[in-house]
Design a protein around this nucleic acid. Structure first.
Length: 425
RNA sequence: GGAGAGGUGCCGGAGCGGUUGAACGGGCGCGACUGGAAAUCGCGUAACGGGGGUCAACCUCGUUCGAGGGUUCGAAUCCCUCCCUCUCCGCCA
């Protein structure tokens, strides 16, 4: 949610910023401003009449106590009451419309977010290995340890069974990620994965990406597509005193995505599936600190990729591709030998005050003008390890000519095998 | 799932339908007293929204007693729906 006061104060700046995403948004801002003045006019008249009503009401109460006849005043008040009701309804309707439109505006892009239309390459790290033999993809390397047929039979397309050593590898990746994040000050969290609408609205996934989200029809609950939803909601409605910031959480959860509209895309293997495990970072920081925190989170993602010996590159996502809540986003893309290109593995976003305003998560300004006043915190999120895709990258980059896979040393202490045997036929 | 109890400010805890934004107590902050402290006394102690303002301080109006509706001139107080907490029974990893 954008700050309505900012839209009033500097509409041209807001329009210019939103136009970077989509020129049509500037008009939307004008529409919102018109609704805003309508709402404020209605509110002012409703409230001043209500003030008069309250005052008269007190006179009635005083008169009754004194034993006076208040019949006439009561009749007048009855009429006032009806008018107040009408005016209040008008104001409420205007406010509802305003809020609905406002809620659909995406976040203002950060000035340093890439202009697009292409993402901007930030850096490339690590050299793709010269294999010297034809690359196998992750399904060939995994063999029966990834069972797509059984997954499809059980649950449909884009579901998989993971078996044997790959389960050990998955658990090790998760432990390794949690361990690494702990050293960076992130508190491990296992959140609920079924949430109410508010959590999705608050994080900006609704009304924006409705078609991506699984809903339980009978219970008014949704399956989260990322633990970001649950973690950002952890402080829903709170005022966090500035000395408690930053607050950092490492969420571990399964993630569920409908992948509607992705038909025919990445259909092979577990690159794009309806359910996967992920360890996610989420930070709540003072507004002045979010840019630095964003780089910090990116740094942790890069540390993990480096330790896992996965060649990758970092891109600054083009404004037109930003999700509605992000002001700026980096993706880390891993080299996949079988596709001979870089594919998205992790991602981190600075959502500034967009989610915090919707979820009413505030802190207090601790100096300067307006000291002691509450203002929304900034929230940021980033992938530590998206297990399925990380596994793909490990398999493909660690593959040997005989079809075996060498796995990185850093996972061994967490129970991962050092080597995967070639897939049996 | 069945039966019952309950949700009030930072906390505890009152509250005949009418000066209750909310008694009383505690906590916290400031001040007085003190060499300093304790004790004591005094003052203060919300969020959100509208309007005004030298757009800071501040002033003013409104909303908020789990949430949303309703009754009423007037609701923390009455009615309905939902959410949450606790106790007992049932079921269960």
């Amino acid at each position: 949610m954008l700050d309505l006061k900012q839209i009033r104060r500097e509409p041209e700046i807001v329009k210019a910023a939103l136009s970077r995403r989509d020129p049509a948004l500037a008009e939307e801002v004008d529409g919102i401003l018109a609704l805003d003045s309508e709402w404020r006019a209605a509110t002012t008249s409703a409230e001043s009449l209500r003030a008069a009503q309250k005052e008269a009401s007190e006179r009635v109460a005083a008169g009754k106590r004194a034993g006076a006849d208040v019949g006439e005043e009561l009749a007048r008040l009855k009429e006032t009451s009806a008018r107040v009701k009408t005016l209040a309804e008008q104001a409420a309707r205007a406010e509802q419309q305003l809020q609905d439109r406002l809620a659909r505006l995406p976040n203002l892009p950060d000035p340093t977010a890439a202009d697009g239309p292409e993402d901007e390459l930030v850096r490339t790290v690590g050299e793709p290995r010269e294999l010297g033999f034809p690359a196998r993809d992750h399904l060939e390397l995994a063999g029966p340890r990834i069972d797509m047929d059984a997954g499809a039979k059980l649950s449909g397309t884009r579901f998989a069974y993971l078996k044997g050593e790959l389960v050990r590898l998955e658990l090790a990746l998760v432990s390794y990620a949690i361990d690494t994040l702990s050293t960076h000050g992130f508190t491990p969290v296992i959140p609920p994965v079924l949430v109410r609408e508010r959590a999705l609205y608050g994080t900006g996934f609704l009304p924006d990406t409705e078609q991506q989200i699984y809903r339980l029809a009978d219970d008014d609950l949704y399956l989260i597509g990322t633990s970001e939803v649950a973690l950002a909601s952890l402080h829903d409605g709170e005022v966090i005193e500035p000395q408690r910031l930053p607050l950092r959480y490492a969420g571990y959860s399964p993630c569920f995505r409908r992948e509607a509209g992705a038909a025919g895309k990445d259909t092979r293997g577990i690159f794009r599936v309806h359910q996967f495990e992920k360890v996610e970072m989420l930070s709540f920081v003072a507004p002045t600190d979010s840019a630095a925190e964003h780089e910090r989170i990116l740094g942790i993602e890069e540390q993990i990729l480096t330790e896992l010996a996965i060649p990758y590159r970092v891109v600054n996502i083009a404004v037109s591709d930003l999700g509605s809540s992000a002001a700026k986003k980096y993706d880390c893309e891993a080299w996949l030998p079988s596709q001979e290109r870089y594919r998205e593995l992790t991602s981190c976003s600075n959502t500034t005050d967009y989610q915090a305003r919707r979820l009413s998560i505030r802190t207090r300004r601790d100096d300067g003008p307006g000291r002691g006043q509450t203002e929304p915190v900034h929230t940021l999120n980033g992938t530590a390890v998206a297990v399925g895709r990380t596994m793909i990258a490990l398999l493909e980059n660690g593959q040997q000519e005989d079809g075996s896979v060498t796995l990185p040393e850093c996972l061994a202490p967490f129970g991962a095998p050092r080597r995967l045997a070639p897939a049996g036929r």
